[in-house]
Write a protein that binds this DNA or RNA. Sequence first.
DNA 1: ACTAACCATGGACCATTGTCAATGGTTTTG
DNA 2: CAAAACCATTGACAATGGTCCATGGTTAGT
Lengths: 141, 141
Amino acid sequence: MRIGELAKRADVSRDTIRFYERHGLIRSDVDPKADNSYRIYAEDAVLTLEVIRDAQAAGLSIAEITVFMGQFMAQDGETHDAQQFLEDRITEVTTRITASTRFLDMLRQTKAALARAPQDGLREMSKAKPDTGKKGQGSDT
Amino acid sequence: MRIGELAKRADVSRDTIRFYERHGLIRSDVDPKADNSYRIYAEDAVLTLEVIRDAQAAGLSIAEITVFMGQFMAQDGETHDAQQFLEDRITEVTTRITASTRFLDMLRQTKAALARAPQDGLREMSKAKPDTGKKGQGSDT
DNA sequence: ACTAACCATGGACCATTGTCAATGGTTTTG
DNA sequence: CAAAACCATTGACAATGGTCCATGGTTAGT
């Protein structure tokens, strides 16, 4: 298919597709039996764009997604780097999901508190604590 | 506490704290009985910075986090806008978590496939398909 | 007292992730 | 056929989220 159709089907702009392509996230060929310069995209490009969307939601940068796509398509070795990369991403994404969920709870609690005491403000909310469990050594250097 | 201590305790740079402050995400006062211009941060600023981190992980922009913080601290009305805002954020964050989780699965599957067929590449992976379901279109002219 | 370490302010600078506009060619369709 | 709609390429522009630097004042340790 051509870029316009892909754009419609994946719900992204043509410019975005071109941007991704420049960054190696997606590929296209030129129809050899046409003498124009129109690029042709495979069917699975739609899927690829959806994966890119998810990957971005998960916090990966374009550069990282490019690597992932490369890994995904890879045929040759470099298995070690690949494994390591994937492991790192898994850790990061997991962490992000945890933080997001924590924040989601906070949103819900805030909303509930607000519903409970509309004009009163929500000073009592102060009790809602995040529960990080990581940093914060109690004193200065 | 002063900015340096806060920076250490919350594990962000001083510049980032100042950046947040300029954008209304955090506040500080000047010690009235000191004649310097050093800013003093309350204890809970550490917590605030942690919440900001989570909110960012959840995909909120600085502007949105600022609104949330305002809501959180709010004393006056505007309950309707607040409720609506919170609801919208809840929907968005939930969606993001779903997408992230979907992508996380993909990472895991890719890793597994790679472990299974190191030199073979993972052509069979093609079967792993997401599961979106949207509509509409992006225009570009 | 002197120096290292800290602080404030302002503005320049940077990477990332696109978007837009100009220019010129191609295809489709009424 | 002629216009509308589509396509490619290039490069400028923009918003976001910081980071760095220069300058000058403050505090703390030795």
